[in-house]
Design a protein around this nucleic acid. Structure first.
Lengths: 164, 164
DNA sequence: CGTCGTAGGTTGATGGTTCAAGTAACCCGA
DNA sequence: TCGGGTTACTTGAACCATCAACCTACGACG
């Protein structure tokens, strides 16, 4: 009987799916309204703002943001056209593109961050005890590990699978 | 100091965002490949298959699936054109549309479900203890409650907000 | 028995994501 | 030093979600 989910699992599953669909929508809606940014756009800007020298290679940025290179490329192109980031080829290796946060982009982050963080606290962490925060980190970390394993397995063995 | 997140919260936040972005992508990719269905499409079919008489009003379906009526309308239109569901106005109230799962749609669910459920178990529940499943339900339920509160607050007070 | 307001859905345009294909720079062996 | 393979990224088309506008059916009030 490995066929279906237990009742406990079903309830957890429904809640998780609900969060996974509603949470991004809520963040997007809030950021779009306040700053005309996608959640993903904001995430990119925020990561660049914390990176050394405020710049990162495209592939590193893609990995850190759990996005495909294609998605990132489109998004950064849009952000560049709005003056928030600037792209430049790396001197050492002409294949590599580094995205750098401009001063305007940094200003945008500084201006947007407080409201965004307040919203996140309101929706996610308000009423969560420290133990629940730890549990959230733990359980999501476990799931996240399997998700990233799955991804690296997919493009690690493009031709054949052997393990199962 | 209500400005930023604590370190614990930051780590939990990163993991949650990772799951919220990667999990839908993983489900979509798996279902698209196996059954040429969106995760949302599958969810609709699955809900109809469990509903009394295999039919539901559009608005009820929208609420249960955490989707906007517009999104649902488009999705059901696509599913109808593929012969999986059928729409009909309700006799009592001409405004209401009920979506009913056809035999073909039921067959599709029966055919697709096992692989989908197996994938969910592999990615989400594999290696989670019963306590962790309970914690997941609990914490996500709490967050989900705040998210749905936010939504009903938004279209409950369309004219003005007072609190902030 | 109109008509005003609202509930329930639909539609079209816009914009972001994805997938497949393409391009250019690097590396390595002969 | 030249050609095949790989890495890193970009591009264009197709698709899905979202938002705003719209439309029809019901309900209530005069």
């Amino acid at each position: 009987m490995t066929e279906w989910l237990t009742d406990d699992q079903q309830r957890a599953w429904r809640n998780l799916i609900g969060v996974a669909t509603l949470l991004p929508a809520s963040l997007d809606s809030n950021l779009r309204c306040d700053a005309d940014l996608t959640g993903f756009d904001y995430w990119i800007l925020a990561m660049l703002s914390e990176a050394p020298d405020r710049q990162l290679r495209m592939s590193a940025l893609a990995r850190q943001s759990n996005a495909s290179l294609s998605r990132l490329s489109h998004a950064v192109a849009r952000l560049e056209s709005r003056g928030y980031v600037q792209k430049a080829p790396l001197a050492d290796d002409g294949r590599v593109t580094v995205a750098r946060l401009t001063d305007g982009g940094m200003a945008k982050v500084v201006e947007t961050a407080p409201g965004h963080v307040a919203h996140v606290r309101d929706v996610v962490f308000r009423d969560l005890s420290p133990e629940q925060v730890a549990q959230l980190e733990d359980v999501c970390g476990s799931i996240l590990g399997r998700l990233t394993d799955e991804i690296s397995a997919r493009d690690g063995e493009p031709g054949q699978s052997s393990g199962r």
